[in-house]
Amino acid sequence: MDLSLTDEQEFLREAARGALKRVDTVAAAREALEDESKRPDLWKTIVEAGWTGLLTSEDQGGAGLGLYDAMLVAQEAGRVLAPVPLVSTLPAATILDAADDQAAEVVAGGETRIAWLPAAPPTDQEPRWTSDPHRGVLRADLPTAELDGDAATLNGTVHWVPDAAQAEQLLVTASGPEGPVAVLVDATATGVTVEGLWRYDATRPLGHVTLKDVQGRVVQADETAIRRAWQVAQGLLAAEAVGTVDALLPIAIAYAKERHTFGRAIGSYQAVKHQLVEVLRLLENAKSLLIYAAWAFENAPGELALATAAARSGAEHALDVATRVQISVHGGIGATWEHDAPLYFRRAQLSRRLLGGASGATDRVAGELMAGVVPA
């Protein structure tokens, strides 16, 4: 099996890297900690690059690419801490495209900014559809939907929604009479309240979305498509994490070669070597899991939940370890405000908590693997 990138994928990756170089997003991440308005708005960049339509079929005006292509772009965003709204846009586009909805082409073309309100499918431990809680570890209920044909009335709250405050439309997964339903809502509709906020990582705008008797239009997507959106989001977060680790490791290695103590480069000490090798091991493992997720997306839908959860679990662990090693290798300077290492550490600590978190992904892996086990 040839796992190398195709010419088209190489071009996509280099084009993404070039587009993101137009703004010094790492420097902007530092400035945004002091003033949120300093966070760059890269919406125009992603529309011009066609990233809003990566997972939308060509019939709906998109590029008709696969999950691995989208993850290549996400990796480049992760490398430079770019606040690119892929996790909010592409899962929504996936649902709209699967439903052959009229809004799919509009979203793919970037004519409207849409935010997907994350909804986690059931697991062996949690038999209902859920959303992230405001605080604590107990999963929260989805908003409820009262249906009247293609119209829906929504009530409920969804917390920690990526890019919610910047969106013009919201794609809500709600609990309907017979299971989850996808409902498209205008972000300025009566009864919609979006509390924009950020926590810890200024490159990741979030929002609490409250819906009170909100009128929306039902998107005719089945439960499989709604599940797929969650799995796509898990893959994208995993890819962002891999991109960040891939950027950090060479920096740490270079510093370990340059920094000398007691007449020797610190990289010559086993304690430092072992830390860096462990980051490399975790990175290569996470990259392999991304490939598995991409393969499952195209060839084995029944394995996609396992594959994306495994990728998320492995990548978030790699990112957590890498950012800690980055600070450790740089010694005292690595923990200072002037160094970039704490910015990446902030990204890691927020990323591993969003959308069910790394622990939720790990639990999902265990549940998927144990599902077919028959007790002796």
Results as ranks from 00 to 15, higher is better:
257 K>D: 11
255 Y>R: 09
262 F>H: 14
264 R>C: 09
284 E>S: 09
248 L>V: 03
271 A>W: 07
276 L>Q: 04
256 A>Q: 02
260 H>N: 07
256 A>F: 01
266 I>D: 02
282 L>K: 09
254 A>E: 10
264 R>G: 06
272 V>K: 01
268 S>Y: 03
250 P>M: 08
270 Q>V: 15
248 L>I: 06
279 V>A: 03
260 H>L: 04
261 T>D: 11
261 T>I: 14
265 A>N: 06
269 Y>T: 07
283 L>G: 00
265 A>D: 06
269 Y>A: 08
248 L>S: 01
262 F>P: 04
283 L>D: 01
271 A>Q: 13
274 H>K: 13
254 A>M: 06
277 V>S: 14
250 P>Q: 07
269 Y>R: 10
261 T>A: 12
272 V>D: 01
263 G>N: 00
274 H>Y: 13
277 V>Y: 14
284 E>H: 11
257 K>W: 06
284 E>V: 11
276 L>Y: 05
263 G>Y: 00
263 G>M: 00
264 R>Q: 15
279 V>H: 03
262 F>D: 14
262 F>N: 15
274 H>N: 15
248 L>G: 00
279 V>F: 03
265 A>T: 09
258 E>D: 13
282 L>H: 04
252 A>D: 01
265 A>V: 06
257 K>Q: 11
257 K>Y: 10
281 R>K: 15
273 K>A: 07
257 K>S: 08
281 R>T: 15
248 L>Q: 01
279 V>P: 04
258 E>I: 12
257 K>I: 04
262 F>T: 13
255 Y>H: 12
248 L>Y: 02
249 L>P: 02
279 V>G: 02
268 S>W: 05
273 K>W: 07
261 T>N: 08
278 E>N: 09
274 H>T: 15
255 Y>W: 12
275 Q>C: 03
265 A>I: 07
270 Q>G: 14
274 H>P: 03
272 V>C: 04
250 P>N: 06
272 V>N: 01
273 K>T: 10
283 L>M: 05
261 T>V: 14
270 Q>N: 14
268 S>P: 01
251 I>T: 07
277 V>H: 15
261 T>R: 14
281 R>I: 13
276 L>W: 05
256 A>G: 03
255 Y>C: 04
255 Y>Q: 07
272 V>S: 01
268 S>G: 05
273 K>I: 06
281 R>M: 13
249 L>V: 07
256 A>D: 01
281 R>S: 14
270 Q>T: 15
269 Y>E: 10
269 Y>V: 09
254 A>Y: 06
262 F>V: 12
269 Y>F: 12
280 L>D: 13
281 R>F: 12
270 Q>A: 15
265 A>P: 07
275 Q>M: 10
283 L>C: 03
258 E>A: 14
249 L>F: 04
258 E>W: 12
268 S>V: 05
284 E>A: 05
270 Q>M: 13
259 R>H: 11
280 L>Y: 08
283 L>P: 00
260 H>Q: 07
283 L>R: 03
250 P>G: 05
250 P>L: 06
275 Q>E: 09
269 Y>L: 08
258 E>R: 15
281 R>D: 15
279 V>D: 03
254 A>T: 08
267 G>K: 00
276 L>I: 08
268 S>K: 06
275 Q>D: 08
253 I>E: 15
